[in-house]
Write a protein that binds this DNA or RNA. Structure first.
Lengths: 129, 129
DNA sequence: CTTGACCTTCCCCTCGCTGGAACCCTCATA
DNA sequence: TATGAGGGTTCCAGCGAGGGGAAGGTCAAG
């Protein structure tokens, strides 16, 4: 398979696939003309990476997850720990965003949103609040 | 005031303050020795920026907000619209993160987390789910 | 033979800083 | 008077995870 084929089959942009090769996540062979030549296993890895990335894992986490996946003597505890740490980071981000949302939401609710200049949002930002 | 003073009084790192000057958010004067020389108004702007950034506004949003703040004939509707758009982006991010959290949370719950290799997390990532 | 779709490498851009190198300024102390 | 500490200055590189686009090679169809 050429890169366009794996791109459409994995849903990942060709640029991303080249990047993943660049950083050593996949190692496709090369055809005589210099084109990357992907096997089914490469496609499988790319799909794996795409799903892991969609769950928000970092590239380095993905590297670890792939290594665990390929290690048949892995302990599921290692996978679970990685996932739990990631889950904790997600929770932290959600909490941060929710705090922002709450503060900003209140300010927005207090703002008349008309043609007058008086604005509680700017008032708060300026420290007059 | 030198940069160290505004840094400690605004809570922003000196690097960040230099960066904000670089991109034209503030324009401190210079002393004879070449040092940046900050007035109270600069400090006030930096505090404004710090609060806007803490609410998750992008630098470009901050630039617009500062312009609105300094424009005495602004309409609060313009501020409110910007804030509402930002609020919508925050909500989108929260929703994305919550979706990740839900999926990953279920997988984590299904994973024994022991010394055996069998792992529903990896199974899902590999597409066997 | 040419066209168009595909592939290659290469380098710069994103965003919001952060770290570090190399150097200048000022003040206090030995 | 040297010197050292603790400011300040500039510029360059890098982070994560790719994206955009140029310049050029390859291949199948018409």
């Amino acid at each position: 398979m050429n890169i366009g084929d794996v791109s459409s089959r994995s849903g990942l942009p060709a640029k991303t696939i080249r990047y993943y090769e660049d950083i050593g996540l996949i190692k496709p062979h090369r055809s005589a003309n210099g084109y990357r030549c992907f096997a089914e296993t490469d496609l499988h890895k790319l799909a794996f990476l795409g799903r892991a990335r969609a769950l928000g894992f970092t590239i380095e986490d993905c590297r670890t997850l792939m290594a665990l996946y390929e290690d048949e003597s892995r302990a599921s505890a290692d996978v679970k720990q990685l996932a739990q740490e990631h889950l904790a980071k997600i929770e932290e981000k959600i909490a941060d965003l929710q705090a922002m949302h709450e503060t900003l939401g209140e300010l927005v609710n207090c703002c008349a949103g008309d043609s007058r200049p008086d604005c509680p949002i700017l008032k708060d930002l300026s420290g007059e609040g």
